[in-house]
Amino acid sequence: MFIYIARRIALGVSVLLVTLVVTFLIFFAGPADPAQSLCAENRCPAVKLEQIRTSMGLDRPISVQFAEYFQGLFVGRDITDGGNVNHCSAPCLGYSFHNHLQVSDEVFRRFPTTVALALLAMVVFLGVGVSLGVVAATRRGSAFDRTLVGVSQVFGAIPYIVVALLFALYFTVLYPILPQTHPFSDGFGPWIVGLIAPAIVLGLVTSTAYVRYTRAQMVDTLAQDYVRTARSKGISGRSVIYKHGLRAALSPVLTILGLDMAGLLSGTLITEQIFSVDGLGKLAITALIQTDDLPIIMGTVLLGCVIVVALNIVVDIAYSFVDPRVRLS
């Protein structure tokens, strides 16, 4: 077990290192020109662009830049920015080109908001999706079942951005029954309450997939021989459905959950943008679209990769506890 986990972590770390190199090359050696977007003037004179590049260190060879970045990640480094020397301690992701704040601070400051949003949404989509899916499966073919499957298909088919926009418009603007979002600095209460609206819409829309998935798994499981055996023991119908049926039906759901949570935790781009949630997704989008802020983009991408790799390991370990046939060796 320990050997297995250690191996998985080692593998995860090597995946991360490769991702680090590849993303660095894509962003820093690619066509993006941050100097252009930092230049205030409309048609930036070449001399000025050159100055900006030099001050950001972008004129040096890519290998030197990477070595610096790599060193910063693990031991920290000093960064010269317009004549001042600032120490950036590990894990140093550099300074934002845009507002000259430390990228790691910018990222980690927003991480709790994204985590909270993802967890709240998870509560909604697991609660709603799994319970409705189970009920639909046990009443297969009933009016309830058919309505539910229909509704979930319709909702799943409408582009998410439309649903989210309408929801935000109706419930936070036209009929503001749900509170507006607040940054963490406004205090814990307003901050967490503000996440309710985005969590509901994100959770509900995600739950349509969980309804269908849980229902399908449950229908399949309830037809299994071991469920018939369970019924033949004379235990209650409840035990049969929840203890024997749901337990087996949920283990494949766990895999999907891991993937979905990895996605949500690395930032929910559309939701955060629409509800102005100050999380990783919004940070990344702003950096990408408005400012070509490469260090911020690099930082959010790297954090996303760490989350994906970590959750994969967590899911594998969790799976081995749920399904004894999966041996970690």
Partner: peptide, 17 residues
């Protein structure tokens, strides 16, 4: 308690978990 059944396929008749 009064009537019990042994099913055909022991492979699939016991709960794997």
């Amino acid at each position: 308690s009064s009537v019990a059944m042994v099913f055909q396929d022991p492979q699939s008749s016991l709960h794997p978990f």
